[in-house]
Design a protein around this nucleic acid. Structure first.
Lengths: 340, 340
DNA sequence: CTGTTAGCGCATTCAG
DNA sequence: CTGAATGCGCTAACAG
């Protein structure tokens, strides 16, 4: 091909620098000391000839690929994208490169992707979210260093980096309670729904606990299932309204559904926050620009990704990874009013 | 089972199937006919031993990596993510895998990323957006098959797949005109702003042309610069209002700024669409759930990505790629009212 | 149709 | 500190 690029080999620069190929290899990767003059000659030759090592050959010979496989879900989700950015940042000053694949929240695809990553000889794996079973993930963890981000897997202790969703939801609900609300509805997603199930269940648990702790019995009529998408927020509110059980606030398990809920309320002529207060979860970028701006929970996505990157690097170097505990912050905006 | 994975080689399965390694290779990659019985024996051995080829070895020996490098910008932008999905889809049934890297809209990073992709022996390159100079991109195009998506580069004719932003903006503006508006403001971004410059300028051109075509002279007082982010939409409206030039509609060059504009109007007590109609660009998912739902331009991101994938595959196989022309559609929602 | 023979480009022993 | 030799796992001519 026209790949002049790939044509310069370690042999070419060995000749040019009057040394053996092995010395070039040593000089370039610093695997052993090389005399200063040869070192210089080699480096000169390298950029005169514009040499770039062939990663495949390196990988084949060394058994390392210097790449970290990252299984993610749905490019485009703000939370997951934040994590990707964090991983990017965490790997930035290292020699490792991330290889991203999208599992699309389908366990079959996820497994295929994971295998493909292994085929590509990745040195480590970061699994971001997803719904592959814990057992499957564990099986992969046995084959290669693996860190799970944004998800808690009980069978992989010390390998999962996640946000305390329970605490976060507790805080959000508590905020509503503190503002005088007692009839607080919750839009969640069913246990068997194929997405981020644990997180969502944790949020529901936090919601209930916050109520219980102030002596309010959670009312099943105030809890309604959605599917995490905007449209389901619309339906959830319709359903809630249909049940006839009055409420003065809604806590939605994610912003998407909160947006949908907001629209449904608007269409019914119910004012936010005058008639009903609204709280979301995720702090999507548009949350600050809805009308009124949405009170929501901000997860430290970037930090989470960063920590995942650090952890996988540690694992690769046979250190014990540090698994920080992350708490989410409530971002208070105008969608919540004091209950009168 | 630990790392047994990487240990099974083509030789193992050759022995197990009583054939030579080359026959195994041929059978597996279909590079030549193999008798049915051997074929079967090989396939059996493959999954009995759970064999998976070593991609590095394949790449080294064949000179092909079966990966397509994709340089993208900002994971998280809905438009760009749509393109990534399209590329994913386009590559789905092939043996190629995309390798994504994020240029973050910084030409230095973009170039580094492009080189890294070349180092990884990618068989082709898809450059999505970005602000690397046309010359630089052309230089890479000389080294490897390359397709540009979501951007028009004059020095790479027949290699760029993009949406006709001029037409789209024209349509959007025309819609407002047809609804009786004559004083239409436009929120854009300055020429030198480091992002998607051409697209935004094309949108401004479409806006002006639509006005001119019905005999309205574009008024510079109605055109204001933002930076494509939500916050700048807020500021843009403040500025517009400060200028004292009345207007009954706003066309924002992207949804983000439209969201900001909507919020600023709301805070001033200006109703949408009763007092001012609003149109955005991009059809971000939340556009349908703002209050009121936003009329906006939907770019065929998925189709664009798909076309890019097809085109790069064609290029790799030495065919002339088909470069379709894409038009964006106006999605009409309640944020536009007839002017009274 | 199939086995044999050479490398692909590099890292890594092993001797000096 | 350095060169020569060997092999990573696979594909691609080359002969049958």
């Amino acid at each position: 091909m026209t790949n002049q690029h790939a044509k310069v080999t370690i042999l070419d620069i060995a000749q040019r620098a009057n040394v053996s190929p092995s010395t070039v290899s040593r000089a370039l990767r610093g695997s052993a000391a090389v005399s200063d003059d040869k070192q210089k000659a080699i480096l000169d030759a390298v950029d005169e000839l514009n040499y770039r090592p062939n990663i495949f050959a390196q990988g084949l010979a060394s058994g390392q690929s210097m790449t970290i496989g990252v299984l993610t879900q749905n490019f485009g989700s703000p939370f997951y994208d934040g994590i990707l950015q964090g991983i990017l940042d965490g790997l930035d000053q290292t020699n490792y490169w991330p290889l991203f694949v999208d599992g699309r929240w389908q366990s079959a695809l996820e497994e295929r992707a994971l295998n493909m990553l292994l085929d590509r000889q990745v040195d480590g794996l970061i699994v971001v979210g997803g719904q592959t079973s814990g057992e499957t993930v564990q099986a992969f963890a046995q084959k290669t260093p693996l860190i799970v981000a944004a998800r808690k897997l009980d069978n992989l202790p010390g390998r999962c980096i996640y946000v305390n969703n329970f605490e976060a939801a507790y805080k959000a609900t508590k905020h509503l309670i503190d503002r005088g609300h007692r009839d607080i509805a919750h839009i969640t997603a069913p246990m068997d729904y194929a997405t981020a199930v644990n997180d969502i269940q944790e949020r529901k648990r936090g919601y209930k606990q916050a109520l219980t702790d102030v002596g309010i019995e959670p009312d099943p009529r105030l809890i309604v299932d959605g599917n995490l998408r905007q449209q389901s927020g619309v339906l959830a509110v319709e359903m809630l309204l249909g049940r006839g059980r009055p409420f003065s606030a809604i806590f939605a398990a994610n912003d998407q559904m909160a947006f949908g809920a907001r629209l449904a309320l608007y269409r019914r002529g119910i004012r936010v926050p005058d008639d009903v207060s609204l709280v979301g979860f995720d702090d999507e970028s548009s949350a600050a620009y809805t009308i009124p701006p949405l009170t929501t929970v901000k997860q430290p996505a970037l930090e989470l990704g960063l920590a995942a990157a650090k952890a996988i690097l540690a694992l690769i170097n046979n250190h014990t990874p540090t698994i920080p505990v992350f708490d989410a912050e409530l971002t208070i905006r105008e969608s919540v009013a004091r209950h009168r």
